Simulated scan of single mutants.
Amino acid sequence: MDLFDDLPEPKQTPVPVSAQLKSTREEEEEVKEEEKSLKRKREDAECHADKKEEEEEKEEIKKVCREGLPVLRGYVAARRGEREEMQDDHVMLPDMSSCMSALPCQVSRVSYFAVFDGHGGARASRFAAEHLHHNLAKKFPSGETENLDKLVKKCLLDTFRQTDEDFLRKASSQKPVWKDGSTATCVLVVDDMVYVANLGDSRAVLCRMEAAAGGGGGGGGGGGVGGQRKVVTLALSKEHNPTIYEERMRIQRAGGTVRDGRVLGVLEVSRSIGDGQYKRCGVISTPDLRRCQLTANDRFIILACDGLFKVFSADEAVKFVLNVLQEGSVEKRSGVTEEEVRFEAACQQLASEAVRRGCADNVTVILVSIGF
C-alpha cells in the first residue's frame, strides 16, 4: 500500500440526542445559577448600602441632637474633716457611652455623677462606686424603645437592688462579716433629662435662674446673673432617715425600733446599700426617683453628702457657689477656660467652708456645671 494513499475516514460515534439536550440544559442551568448568584450579590450590596446609609442617617440625627444638648462638666472636692478615715466615694462620668454596649436609638448621650457616703467603714461606698454604674450600663435600655422614661426608672431600681445584693453577698462571705453601709445619690442625665436616684441623706440640688417678676430676664444658664434674675433652688432628692413617718412605720412593721432618731438607736439612715444586720429591721435599698428636664435657665447641680448639708442649707450652698462664680479676677490657666476655673474654685471653696464652719464629718461635693 502506498504510504501516501488516503487514509480511511475515522468512524464517529454518534452522540445521542438525549445527551445533547442534557448538556444544553446543564449549561442553561449554570447560566441561571450564575445570574441568580449575581442578583443575590447585587441585592446584598444594595441592602448593605441601605443599612449603612440608615446608620449614617441615625448618627447624623444623633450628632444634630447632641449639638443642642446641655454641656455638662463635673468638678469634685473631698475633705476628710476630723474623721480618721475617708469613707466617702464618688464617680464622675460626663459621657458614659464607653461603659455601654449600645444606647437607645433616640438617645445621644448619657452622663452619670454619684456620691456615696460610707458608715461603719469604707467598703460599701467603695463597692458601690466601683460597681453601680457598671450594673446600670448592663441594664440600660438599648435599640428601638418605647416609653424610655419608664424603662430608665426600672433600670435604676434594678441597678440599686443588684448592687446591694452583690455587696451583701460579698460582705457575708467575709470573716468577720463586713458590717459597712453606704448612702447613694446618683444623677443620671439622659440627653437633657435628669434622673436622680437616692438612698439615705446625701442630697442633690439644682440652681435655676428665672426672670424676676417685671424683669427682662434674658441670657442662658451659662451667662452672668443680673439683678433681674431670680435664684431658684430645686431639691432633686429626698432624705431617708428613721424620723420620717413613712420610714419609721416601715421599720416598725418589720420588727425594728427607732430610738434617738436612729434604727435600733444606732443607724442614722433608713435606706442604704449594705448594712446587712439592719435589712431585717426594715432598712431597704429601694431608691427614691425624681426626674427634671434641664432648661437654658439652669446653671449647675450640687451633689453632696450630708457633711455639707449639716452646715449649709440648700439655698445657702447655691448662693455660696454663685458668689464665687461672680467674683472679679481669676487666675488664668493654660488650656482651661475662665468659667472652668471659676467652677473649680467654687467647688473647692464650698467643701473647705463646710469644714471651716465646724463640720467634723467627711465632706464630698460634686459640682456639675450646665451650659447650653
Results as ranks from 00 to 15, higher is better:
65 C>D: 15
299 R>H: 04
308 L>D: 01
210 E>V: 11
71 V>H: 10
47 C>P: 06
222 G>V: 07
255 G>L: 03
339 E>T: 15
319 K>M: 04
117 D>A: 05
103 L>G: 10
48 H>M: 11
288 D>V: 10
266 V>E: 15
334 S>H: 11
13 T>W: 07
236 L>D: 09
355 V>K: 03
363 V>G: 02
365 V>P: 01
188 L>V: 07
361 D>E: 09
162 Q>I: 11
308 L>C: 02
41 K>M: 12
287 P>W: 08
35 E>Y: 00
144 E>I: 00
307 G>I: 02
314 A>E: 12
31 V>S: 02
327 E>T: 14
207 C>V: 00
48 H>F: 05
170 K>R: 11
317 A>W: 06
371 G>Y: 02
66 R>A: 07
372 F>Y: 14
183 T>A: 01
114 A>R: 01
228 Q>I: 00
38 L>P: 02
282 G>Q: 04
75 Y>V: 06
230 K>C: 03
197 A>F: 03
255 G>I: 06
288 D>Y: 12
12 Q>H: 09
234 L>A: 03
57 E>Q: 09
288 D>Q: 11
194 V>H: 13
265 G>M: 05
42 R>A: 11
148 L>Q: 07
248 R>I: 01
337 T>G: 13
341 V>Y: 02
358 G>I: 01
249 M>V: 03
279 K>G: 08
20 Q>C: 07
119 H>P: 04
290 R>N: 13
288 D>M: 09
354 A>R: 05
